[in-house]
């Protein structure tokens, strides 16, 4: 640049760069801002709860439904049930294998890695799906890098929808959705979601509600309650 061959033309290259970058920046921003999407929330028809102060009737809802449709055989104990390996929810096109999840240092449950939000997981401190008790499956609703996650449409499920969990021996435990609820994270009803159940049940959990961008976290959890209706071979 110290060689002033054509001094009156030195500003042309930076000006051209400026124009190209300006066009590129505007196009990117328009594409990014018009590509926003929102996960569905539980429909008004399903038993949506807006607070964690669960009353006795709502607390007993999954129990009574489980008693109404007991599995054909007595529920097997944890040791006799094979580990879960895959999850299918036909209604919302979920088809994922399952990773094992543990607890974080602070006692909260681990979530599948953000590096692959299409991955669902089973919390290994909960019963195996098909054993008596609440088996806990978790999936991301989305991530900033990858967009919608495996449980993006979880809030669109409604009573009667089928949830299939394939186990290590190839058998499939078939569950039926009882209700879908949404809880503020600060008022998460631990006993309702994690407490004992009369038979084999599932709890599918993802995030929902308003997004608090200051902590990059959703304010609610969406919880799907399902009870086992039977098993089948693969």
């Amino acid at each position: 640049m110290s060689d002033p061959v054509r001094p009156r033309r030195r500003f042309v290259l930076p000006a051209a760069v400026a124009a190209v970058l300006a066009v590129l920046g505007i196009v990117l921003l328009v594409v990014a801002l018009t590509g926003q999407q929102s996960p569905p929330r539980p429909s008004a028809g399903s038993a949506q709860q807006t607070s964690g102060s669960a009353s006795a009737p709502s607390a007993s809802a999954p129990s009574s439904s489980a008693q109404a449709a007991p599995p054909a055989d007595p529920a097997p104990v944890q040791e006799d049930v094979p580990a879960p390996v895959a999850l299918r929810i036909p209604t919302i096109d979920v088809d994922s294998d399952l990773v094992d999840l543990g607890l974080n240092d602070d006692g909260t449950v681990e979530v599948p890695p953000l590096s692959d939000v299409s991955q669902a997981g089973w919390y290994d401190g909960s019963p195996r799906p098909g054993a008596t008790g609440p088996a806990l499956l978790l999936g991301h609703v989305d991530s900033a890098e990858q967009g919608p996650g495996v449980f993006f449409d979880l809030g669109a499920l409604s009573a009667g929808d089928e949830v299939d969990v394939t186990r290590a021996d190839g058998t499939v435990a078939v569950f039926s959705v009882q209700r879908v609820a949404s809880y503020p994270k600060a008022q998460f009803p631990t006993i309702d979601v994690y407490g004992n159940t009369p038979g084999p049940e599932l709890r599918l959990i993802t995030c929902g509600g308003a997004f608090d961008s200051s902590v990059r976290s959703y304010e609610d959890n969406i919880v799907v309650y399902a009870t086992m209706s039977g098993t089948r071979d693969s």
């Binding site: 996960p39 978790l138 991530s143 449980f151 995030c207 308003a210 976290s217 959703y218």
Partner: peptide, 9 residues
Amino acid sequence: ADTGAGATA
């Protein structure tokens, strides 16, 4: 559970 990292909201 912290199951969202906020792409769609």
